[in-house]
């Protein structure tokens, strides 16, 4: 049996990869993808905890499924925004999206 800590370490690595992507990549689409990686790290945690703490209760799995659906919706909205920004700016670099500052 694979111990719970293995899932949690995996989830932490996944979260850190996503975080690294969010903080360092220039391309807005990659940033969006990284956010989804972080989200999925959380989903792994949900499922792992649920499976280990109460194996016959699927609430963690259901929650993860719900979260995936919401993430899909969020990505749809995010991509739509990025599409519009791309039309205005002609580029996909997040560091030039700086209109909202002092």
């Amino acid at each position: 049996m694979i111990p719970l800590s293995a899932y949690l370490v995996f989830s932490a690595i996944l979260f850190c990869i996503g975080l690294y992507g969010v903080l360092t990549r220039k391309n807005a689409i990659v940033v969006l993808m990284s956010i989804d990686i972080m989200l999925n790290a959380a989903n792994v945690n949900f499922v792992a905890f649920s499976a280990y703490s109460s194996p016959f209760d699927l609430s963690g799995q259901v929650f993860a499924a719900l979260s995936i659906a919401i993430a899909a919706a969020e990505v749809a909205v995010g991509l739509a925004i990025l599409l519009v920004v791309y039309r205005v700016k002609g580029r996909m670099n997040v560091r030039i999206f700086r209109e909202l500052r002092w």
Partner: peptide
């Protein structure tokens, strides 16, 4: 202080972390 409000989303994200 207002210099810290750069408009760059990634700076804000660093702040959050």
């Amino acid at each position: 202080w207002r210099r810290s409000v750069s408009g760059n989303v990634q700076h804000y994200a660093v702040g959050i972390v």
